[in-house]
Computed example of a mutant assay.
Amino acid sequence: MGRVIAVANQKGGVAKTTTAVNLGIGLAREGKRVLLVDTDPQGSLTASLGYVEPDEIPITLANILTAVINEEEVNPSGGILHHEEDIDIMPGNIELSALEVVMGNVMSRELILKDYIDMMRERYDYILIDCMPSLGMMTINALVAADSVLIPVQAAYLPVKGLQQLIKTILMVKKRLNRGLEIQGILLTMVDYRTNYAKDITAKLRETYGSRIAIFETAIPMSVKAAETSAEGVSIYSHCPKSKVAEAYRNLTQEVLEYEK
């Protein structure tokens, strides 16, 4: 049975998609079978892996979930794209916005994505769900489908402050819909350790949450190289393998693997 990790934060611009991509490809480089699922209507993950026009892809997650809602037969491999760095992708696009509205009127609406993910568990060692930057129905679906949540947080005041609502939502989902859900850890991203500000925020985060929630030892440094990977459609390992960001994501991959032991 594969492990399902939701990469979630309702705040945008915290390197959530970058983390999903590089952790997923990092796990694939360790010999794991990996599926990345793009639940964001913006299709950020899909576009950052080289499919620059997500809205033109014929079969996406929206089509699959619509079939689940309508109780139609679902082809588990339908719509899956294969990336050159040995991962599979279930793409997302703007159609997910309309689907989220439809889901509001569906019975057991929180379980729709779980139905699909459960079909895929036997095929993969890891399934990473890149969540949209909100706490809407699609994100709730991701939390219900997941075994654990990885929370990327930019080392800045407002993103750290916004953690409270996300954690509250995760705990509510755990209590009511998915008792097995765990917070795998908080991952500090876009960290500039040359500044006292970043050091202060990091210390504050550990002081506030460290006793209740794991914080990854690895922190992802601020880097233009990481942003460039999206335009290239590849991971940081291909784009700049000797960079500090590549090394950080390699270390994060090892921490995630250790979590399973």
Rank of each mutant, 00 (worst) to 15 (best):
V74C: 07
T66W: 01
D88P: 06
S77M: 13
V102Q: 13
D88R: 14
D86L: 06
I94F: 03
S48P: 09
I64S: 10
T60C: 05
D86T: 05
P58N: 07
S48F: 09
S77I: 08
I57L: 11
D55R: 00
T60L: 04
I69E: 08
D55A: 12
T66E: 09
T60I: 04
E84R: 12
P76Y: 07
G50T: 10
P91C: 08
S77H: 11
V101N: 03
G78K: 12
E85Q: 14
A67D: 13
N93S: 10
V52L: 09
I94W: 05
A62S: 11
S97F: 00
A98V: 00
I87A: 05
N75A: 11
I89T: 00
I94G: 10
E53P: 10
P91V: 06
M90E: 10
V102S: 02
S48Y: 12
P76H: 14
S77F: 13
D86N: 15
I89S: 05
N75C: 06
I57R: 06
V102F: 02
V52C: 07
P58W: 07
S48N: 05
A98L: 01
E73H: 14
A98G: 12
A62E: 01
S97L: 01
E56L: 07
L49W: 06
N75S: 15
V52I: 14
I87F: 13
D55M: 06
I89A: 15
E85L: 07
T60P: 09
V101R: 03
E100W: 00
I87S: 08
N63W: 03
E56T: 11
E95Q: 08
V74H: 14
I94K: 04
S77N: 09
P76M: 13
E71C: 03
G79C: 02
L61I: 02
D88S: 07
G50Q: 10
E56M: 11
P91D: 12
I89G: 00
L99E: 01
E85I: 03
G92L: 03
E100Q: 07
M90H: 09
V52D: 13
I69K: 01
A62C: 10
E71W: 00
H82K: 15
L81M: 12
M90F: 11
N63H: 13
E100C: 03
E73T: 10
I94R: 15
H82I: 06
N70F: 14
G92K: 02
G50D: 04
L81F: 08
P76S: 10
L96I: 01
S97H: 02
E56I: 05
G79H: 03
L65P: 01
G78S: 15
L99I: 01
G79L: 07
I64A: 00
P76A: 10
